[in-house]
Every structure is written in structure tokens, then in C-alpha cells.
């Protein structure tokens, strides 16, 4: 019971182990999808909210002068990338909720008395589930943005968009799972989600470019992980998938597409390493 979450190892029986690990992970993932199919309200709300943002915010600045935004982009098109990232972010922030409810209602104990090959299957199932659902939500938003005339990325840009979103979702899922195992209950978890959600959106380049912001907010926006996800997607929507292009003129220097992805990736890996000891403790 002490020790850490063991990942399946390459021993002679590793084939069996891998099959068993897959079996338990798929079963846990299936449960989450069954819950979703029977209670789709959170998925739908997760799409509705950004759609409303897209329509209302898009309309708010629709008469702004053409040359106001960098590259003469329309505000709707500018906003699109921000809302897509916001969708992924707020969707992934909820990743911890099912885990928290399992802790509170004792269902986690049912999983813990079972001879799981590795308890990382519990975490992996959450990651698979939340990645799939947030991508579904993001695609719905992208379809809506396209319908509103805010464009659709080229194939290369689409790939970049998905890649960026997936890395962001991993990072945010790690935070949410970490919170789900460290906070005392779902009330506290929802409170944290509530407090974190909007400020992170406003302190990013989702709604306005850095040039519109006072220096201090510009600083915040250029260290905000959301910005590193928004800018590559915005570039993809602008038709550029050249990752060498500088995307962020931050006070501390320029960041190109590679830089954005590398920072997100580093953050994602770093967070999983950060929460690992706690998951080990709680799941061991």
C-alpha cells in the first residue's frame, strides 16, 4: 500500500498485464461516457456558454474600425480562437469533479479494493474522457464560429489547433485532478473553478490583443498559459502555420509558435510530475 503507482512493466507477463491494464482503463472510461450519455447537461452547457460569448462578444465589437486589430482581422475572427481555448480550458477544469464525487460517495473505495494492475488507470480514464469531451465541445464552437463567418482553418492549421488544445487540456486536467484529490469536497472544488475561470480568460489575449492592455495586464497576459494556446490557434485561423513566426511580443521577448507549444508542453509535463506524489499518496 505504500510505494507508488506502478506503470505496467515489461516482465514476461507484460502482455497479460497490458491487456488487463487496457481492460480496466476502458471500463472506467466507459463508465464516464455512460454517465455523459445519460446526463449530457454539462456537455451541452459547456458548448452553450462559449456560443453565447461568441455571439454577444462578436457583436459587441462588430463595428470597430477594420484596422484596429493586428493584421486587420475582424473582431469575430480574433475572438474565435479565444473562445475555443476558453471552451477547452473550462471543460478540462471540470475533469476533477467526477473524481471528487467518487471520493465523497465512496465509489473510489470500490476501485481501490479491486486488484487494478495500476491505479494510474483511474487517472488515465479521466484524461481520455475529458480530452474527448472537450474536443467535441471545441469542434462545436469551431463549427459555430464558421457558421457566423469567422472562418475555418486549413488542414495544417486544424492539426495545429487540435494539437494545441490537447496539450492545454492535459495541463488543465492535471491541475483539476490535483485539486480533486487535495480539496476536502466538491463545494471547495467548484469554488476554485469558479474563481479561476474568468480572471484567467480576461488576463489573456482571448478578448483583446496585448497592445490594448496596460503594461501590468500585458505582463500577466504574456505569462498566462491560455495566451500560449490562443495565439497558435489564432495564427492557424489567420492561415499561417509557420511555427517560426513570432506570435507574442511579450515584454520579456518574442515568442514564436514553437515557443508557445514548448511552454504548454513543459507546463503539462511539469504539472503531471507535480501532482504525481499526491496521486500516489491518495491512490496508494
Amino acid at each position: 500500500m505504500t510505494g507508488s503507482i506502478e506503470f505496467p512493466t515489461s516482465e514476461p507477463a507484460s502482455q497479460m498485464q497490458l491487456a488487463s491494464f487496457t481492460q480496466e482503463t476502458l471500463a472506467l472510461t466507459r463508465r464516464l461516457f455512460l454517465q455523459l450519455a445519460r446526463r449530457p447537461s454539462t456537455l451541452i452547457a459547456g458548448v452553450l456558454q462559449p456560443v453565447i460569448w461568441l455571439i454577444l462578444f462578436g457583436a459587441l465589437f462588430s463595428n470597430a474600425p477594420e484596422e484596429l486589430l493586428p493584421g486587420g482581422m475582424s473582431y469575430g475572427r480574433f475572438l474565435g480562437a479565444g473562445v475555443i481555448v476558453f471552451t477547452a480550458f473550462s471543460g478540462a477544469l471540470n475533469a476533477g469533479l467526477p473524481v471528487m464525487f467518487d471520493r465523497e460517495f465512496g465509489f473510489l473505495n470500490r476501485l481501490l479494493v479491486a486488484p487494478l494492475i495500476s491505479r494510474s488507470s483511474i487517472v488515465l480514464a479521466s484524461v481520455i474522457y475529458i480530452t474527448a469531451t472537450t474536443l467535441i465541445q471545441c469542434f462545436s464552437i469551431m463549427a459555430m464560429a464558421s457558421f457566423l463567418g469567422y472562418g475555418w482553418p486549413e488542414p495544417g492549421g486544424l492539426l495545429l489547433t487540435v494539437l494545441t488544445l490537447v496539450i492545454l487540456v492535459f495541463a488543465v486536467t492535471a491541475i483539476s485532478l490535483g485539486l480533486a484529490f487535495s480539496l476536502p469536497g466538491h463545494i471547495e472544488l467548484i469554488a476554485v473553478i469558479f474563481v479561476v475561470n474568468l480572471p484567467l480568460l480576461f488576463a489573456s489575449t482571448a478578448l483583446a490583443p496585448i497592445s490594448f492592455m496596460p503594461a501590468w495586464l500585458g505582463w500577466l497576459a504574456t505569462i498566462n498559459p491560455l495566451t500560449f494556446a490562443i495565439e497558435p490557434i489564432r495564427a492557424a485561423y489567420g492561415g499561417s502555420v509557420d511555427l517560426h513566426t513570432v506570435l507574442i511580443h511579450a515584454p520579456y521577448g518574442d515568442v514564436n509558435g514553437f515557443g508557445c507549444l514548448a511552454i504548454l508542453m513543459g507546463l503539462s509535463i511539469g504539472l503531471f510530475f507535480l501532482i504525481r506524489p499526491m496521486l500516489n499518496r491518495k491512490l496508494a
Binding site: 463508465r31 454517465q35 460517495f105 465509489f107 470500490r110 486488484p115
Partner: peptide, 20 residues
């Protein structure tokens, strides 16, 4: 601790998979 949203059969199937 049962999952309210699953049916009894689905819960047993999940349990069976957790025990491989």
C-alpha cells in the same frame, strides 16, 4: 457506493473488468 446513473448490470460489468 453504487453509481446512480449506471444500471445494476453495467455496475457488475465494470466490477468484472476491474477484476480482469
Amino acid at each position: 457506493a453504487l453509481d446512480k446513473i449506471l444500471t445494476g448490470r453495467e455496475l457488475l460489468q465494470l466490477q468484472g473488468d476491474l477484476y480482469h
